[in-house]
Structures are given as structure tokens and as C-alpha cells.
Write a protein that binds this DNA or RNA. Structure first.
Lengths: 211, 211
DNA sequence: TTATTTTTCAAACGAGTGTTTTAATCAGGT
DNA sequence: ACCTGATTAAAACACTCGTTTGAAAAATAA
């Protein structure tokens, strides 16, 4: 274990390039040159380019989703203790608040979040499958919580609204990337906290709209 | 003008493959084999792969956006005649209704809509720029109409909500693709009309939510 | 018919891809 | 010192990519 540097250099650089340029558009040559390591380092340390992608997503998504789950469970427990339904707004907050804290905490987090935001609808199977495998369990738990908060909603309508929710969320996440801003018609935007706050209100209103 | 067949075969096949597999993941070999034409046909008829993408998007998006603009202008004129503000729900309907009709009218339309839905956040510059160039004028008009329907909203908040709207819309559009369903956790879904209807209500509630 | 243009076809081109190989270099243990 | 395993380095591998070429084939015009 002589050099943890090389692995970290690659993870950080890959996180940035995958988010900004896309997974397939990032070649091993560009990646390794920018990271300042040898071309063969990726295959030596991670086995393959695809495994590197998994490592990039895993490194940040597992702790982030852990925080999210904790916050969600807290809301559910509180509701259960008071024998009331969980509130939609509380669940949304529990899901989004860790994301906001996460965005501020680490340097490459914005690139990572943008990578995640895009992965949901990525036409490329590699990226999509990797993301889905790592994100699905928590998301299904989140969906289950929301279902309990909206028990009167028709099941199909609930699922549709869940899809709208995912769309809005991933749009916001993508936007944090500098690459995404290249064509945005929005000149100056809200800071992250206020945008999250607005997303919260938007989603609450949409989810609780009359059928 | 001996063979309009080849061009149409290529456009149809490209529309399908670009939507399902992504632009870069669709090679000229696969494309031309599936279309039943020679490898060199794309470069002969369209000049390049990128020009083919432009042709694919142009063919359907220009008439579709024309319908959308007509419907939007009608809403705006009616509001102006009655000297009232246009209603958010009417504008949303004017934008989405042509899409729904379009989805039913033509065979490859679903693939096309899914391609468009993804293009908004596509990390690939080729796809993204092509889509933006062709879609932006109408979208800015649409945004202007919505702004008139929501004059009391803070400008930055309005722009944020616009972003949420785009996210939800593109999520729904992506979903129409068979490729996107591969990992969807949704077993049975609403038909297109009811989903559009639900999207309408969801967006209206979100856009008109208290600040 | 001949002449001319348009379209198709197979083959090759040059560049770029992820990965593997083989030797060199480095570290730590004995 | 020597040995051993981990890491780096340069080069090559096998492959795919979009595009181009030049001749054959088909369609159109005179």
C-alpha cells in the first residue's frame, strides 16, 4: 500500500471528467494525463474503466445515501410514535437536506451530483446500470415513505408523480455542473440552499395536488 | 432524385437507434446494416453522422414546435382580447397537447420524443447543441408566456421553477422509450393521455405554489 | 442509342479506443 | 546486503470508429 495517491488522483479526476464530458467521451489517455499518472494505472488499480466508474459513484453515493436513509427513518419513526402519517414536506426535506450538506462539504461533490443527476436517464447502459444498482434500494425506500404520506392517491397516479419528482430532482442536480451551464438560458441563479428550498415547495405542491 | 427510400430508411432507423442506444453508441455499421443500406450511404446523403442527427431532429421537431407555438399564441391572444392574464393551465395544455397528438400520429414518434427528452441534459455536446439550437426559440417563447401568467413570482424563483418543469417534462418524455423502461421500477403505467393530464396538474400546482 | 448524372458498393484509410504485456523501479522485511 | 511483492513505465495489441476512395451499377436526358 505504497501509494494511495494514485487511486485518489484517478477517482477525483474521473469524477470531474465523467460529469463534465460524459463517461464514454472521457478517454483513458485524457484521464490519466490530467490525473498525472500512467496510462495503465486505471487497469492496474481498478481493473477496467467501468470498475473505475463504479468506484467513483460508490465512494460518495454510499455515505450520502446512508445519511438520507437515517433522516428518512427519523421522520418515519416520529410519525409512528405520534401515530400520524409522515408529512410529505418532511420526507422531501429528509431526502434533500443531506444532498445540500454534501454539496458544501466536499470539493468535487458538485461534479459528482451532476454525474448522478444525469445517470438516471443516461442512454448509456454502463452509466445507467451502475447508478441504478447503487441508488435503487434507497430510492425505493424513499418511495415507500412517500406512499405512506399520500395513502389516498391512486397508485398509478402516485407512480407518475414519482416520475415527475425524479425528473425535477435530476434536472436540478445536473445544473450544478459547469458543463450543463454552457447553454442554460438562465443568467444568474439562486444559490444552492434557496434552490433546494424552492424545489421542496415545488415538489410538495405537485405531489399534494388534487387528483 | 432516384431514391428517397435510402434517406427515409436512414432517418427512421437513426431515430430509433439514437433514442434507444444513444448517439455515440450507435455506430455507422450497426445503423446502416439495420437500415439495409450501404455503409457509405450516410456520408453520401447527409455528409456526416452529425448532420444525420440534425436531420433526424429537424424532421419532426420543426412541425411539432410549429403546432406548439400556434397553440400558445392562441392562448395569449385570447387572454389579450379579454384583457386578463393567460392561465398557467392553458399554457401548459397548449404546450403538451401537440406533443400528445404527435405521439399518436406517427410510428417512430415515441422514439423521437424520448431522444428529445434526453437531449436536454445530454453530456454529449453534439446531441445537446443540436437539440438546443432547434428547440430554444420556442422554449423561450413558452417561458415568456408563463412569465406573463405568473407576474408576481420573483424572477429567480420563476427561473428555478422553469428548470423543475423542464426536468419533469424530459423525464416523462424519456420514459416513452423502451430503452428507458429497462430499469424502471414502475410495472404498469398510465397511458400517455392520462400521464400528460397528470403532468399538467403536477406542474400547475408546482408553478402556482406559494413562494 | 449514347452521354451524363446520380446512387450504390466493397475496400481501405487514419485515428482513436480500452486493455495487455514486459521490463524497470520502488518499497519493506529478513 | 538480498530478496520479495507492489507499483510504475513505455510500448504494443487487437479492435472499432467515422470517413474517403474509386470503380460498378442504376437512373435520367438528349
Amino acid at each position: 500500500m505504497a501509494s494511495p495517491d494514485t487511486k485518489k488522483l484517478l477517482l477525483d479526476c474521473a469524477e470531474k471528467l465523467f460529469a463534465q464530458e460524459g463517461f464514454h467521451h472521457t478517454s483513458m489517455r485524457i484521464l490519466t494525463v490530467q490525473a498525472g499518472v500512467n496510462l495503465a494505472a486505471v487497469n492496474y488499480h481498478f481493473g477496467s474503466k467501468e470498475n473505475l466508474l463504479y468506484a467513483v459513484i460508490e465512494r460518495r453515493l454510499i455515505p450520502l445515501n446512508h445519511k438520507r436513509r437515517e433522516a428518512l427513518e427519523q421522520v418515519m419513526q416520529k410519525a409512528a410514535a405520534n401515530k400520524i402519517r409522515p408529512a410529505v414536506i418532511d420526507l422531501l426535506y429528509a431526502f434533500l437536506q443531506p444532498t445540500l450538506k454534501f454539496l458544501r462539504a466536499s470539493e468535487g461533490a458538485k461534479n459528482f451530483i451532476s454525474l448522478i443527476g444525469r445517470s438516471w436517464n443516461d442512454p448509456d447502459q454502463t452509466v445507467h446500470n451502475c447508478f441504478i444498482n447503487l441508488a435503487m434500494p434507497l430510492f425505493q425506500y424513499f418511495a415507500g415513505c412517500l406512499r405512506q404520506a399520500l395513502p389516498d392517491l391512486d397508485e398509478l397516479i402516485f407512480q407518475a408523480r414519482l416520475q415527475f419528482l425524479v425528473g425535477s430532482m435530476s434536472a436540478v442536480m445536473c445544473d450544478n455542473s459547469s458543463a450543463c451551464k454552457r447553454s442554460s438560458f438562465i443568467s444568474v441563479a439562486l444559490d444552492e440552499e434557496e434552490k433546494m428550498n424552492q424545489l421542496l415547495k415545488f415538489l410538495q405542491a405537485g405531489l399534494e395536488a388534487p387528483q
